[in-house]
């Protein structure tokens, strides 16, 4: 039973991580009907941005791992991630807005490879920064790392507190932002009908940038969470995490923010449970990604509208 609860909690925290990334896919898709497949790389960049912030801080603090490092790292990661996402939108995606679907997709692949390689090749070139060609240890911030905490008989990995807490805070923030601010309402309007919104005086380009930025900020939070959870980061981490988060976004109905959160949590729990309880030779960690991909295919083929979405009728 304890093992089951362990796995459940493990799944929820994994799912929270996916959910934070999935929001980025969903927000952008909701506004421009574009699947930004380079979003996984934004998540990776966010993690590296946070690490860089900590290293720079370390020149003053001597490598302190006190709790107050964390907010600064989050901000640093967000700045870098948001900057990356905004530049990517401006220079790669915006010129292709009316191009055939193939063009932005190939562009996204190009951006992904470029960003991965950029980090791999040049991160270590900055004086005082570690070489990024292999995995880099992530700073062990006090309280969020260290021995697991015993909560009612269940040993909880401390990183889990952070990621679940972050998801709750971000979700609340998003709800407030989308429903209670002028920009958020403008986003809703653009997602309904961009042309009419433009006629109503909404700066659609700006809204699209905001969508990319919001997604990137949450991805950066996820990047930090990933670092705390696994203890290290590497330039390849965006590929798989991005794909799984995309699965989560589709699972929850792409374009739907709450759906992305629900989808992420569902996927995380299913993955953790499947890894732990799948019997026989085809279970266990070496097959878990295969099952995740199988799930992705099944969802895309049989429920592309998500678990709760309604079927959209296309007219002849």
């Amino acid at each position: 039973m304890t093992f089951f609860l362990d796995q459940l909690l493990n799944g929820i925290s994994l799912g929270a991580l996916y959910a934070l990334i999935a929001v980025g896919y969903t927000v952008v898709y909701g506004i421009v009907q574009l699947i930004n497949f380079a979003h996984g790389e934004v998540f990776m960049i966010g993690a590296f941005g946070a690490l860089s912030t900590w290293i720079v801080l370390g020149t003053v603090t001597g490598g302190s791992t006190a709790w107050w490092n964390l907010p600064l790292m989050l901000v640093g990661g967000m700045v870098v991630a948001v900057l990356t996402a905004v530049l990517m939108e401006r220079f790669a995606y915006r010129p292709l807005r009316n191009a055939p679907r193939l063009a932005p997709l190939i562009t996204a692949i190009g951006i992904s490879i470029f960003l991965q390689e950029f980090v791999r090749l040049f991160f270590g070139e900055i004086p005082g920064f570690p070489d990024a060609k292999a995995a880099i240890p992530f700073p062990q911030i006090d309280f969020f790392t260290g021995d697991p905490v015993n909560v009612g008989g269940v040993l909880v990995h401390r990183g889990n507190f952070f990621v679940i807490g972050a998801l709750i805070v971000c979700w609340a923030f998003l709800w407030w932002f989308v429903n209670r601010t002028a920009t958020g309402r403008a986003m809703q309007a653009v997602s309904q009908d961009p042309d009419t919104s433009r006629l109503m005086g909404i700066d659609v380009d700006r809204i699209i940038v905001v969508a990319f930025a919001v997604g990137a900020a949450l991805a950066a939070v996820a990047g930090v969470a990933h670092g705390l959870r696994y203890g290290n980061i590497d330039f390849r981490m965006g590929f798989l995490a991005g794909l799984k988060a995309f699965t989560a976004a589709v699972l929850g109905g792409i374009g739907n923010i709450n759906g992305a959160v629900v989808g992420g949590l569902t996927l995380g729990v299913v993955e953790a449970m499947a890894t732990a309880f799948m019997p026989g030779q085809f279970g266990g960690p070496s097959w878990k990604d295969v099952w995740a991909f199988v799930l992705l295919i099944l969802i895309l083929v049989f429920r592309p509208q998500g678990l709760v979405g309604a079927k959209v009728v296309d007219r002849a």
């Binding site: 699947i35 497949f37 679907r101 997709l105 794909l243 995309f246 589709v250 070496s286 097959w287 990604d289 295969v290 991909f293 199988v294 992705l296 295919i297 895309l300 083929v301 049989f302 592309p304």
Partner: peptide, 27 residues
């Protein structure tokens, strides 16, 4: 899956198949 899926989703489905192939071979 092309019976039901097209466009970006099809691209992702094929990507997933490719990865499944590679991981299965290593396993």
């Amino acid at each position: 899956p092309t019976l039901r899926v097209s466009g970006d989703y099809l691209a992702i489905v094929t990507l997933a198949f490719g990865e499944i192939f590679r991981i299965s071979m290593s396993n």
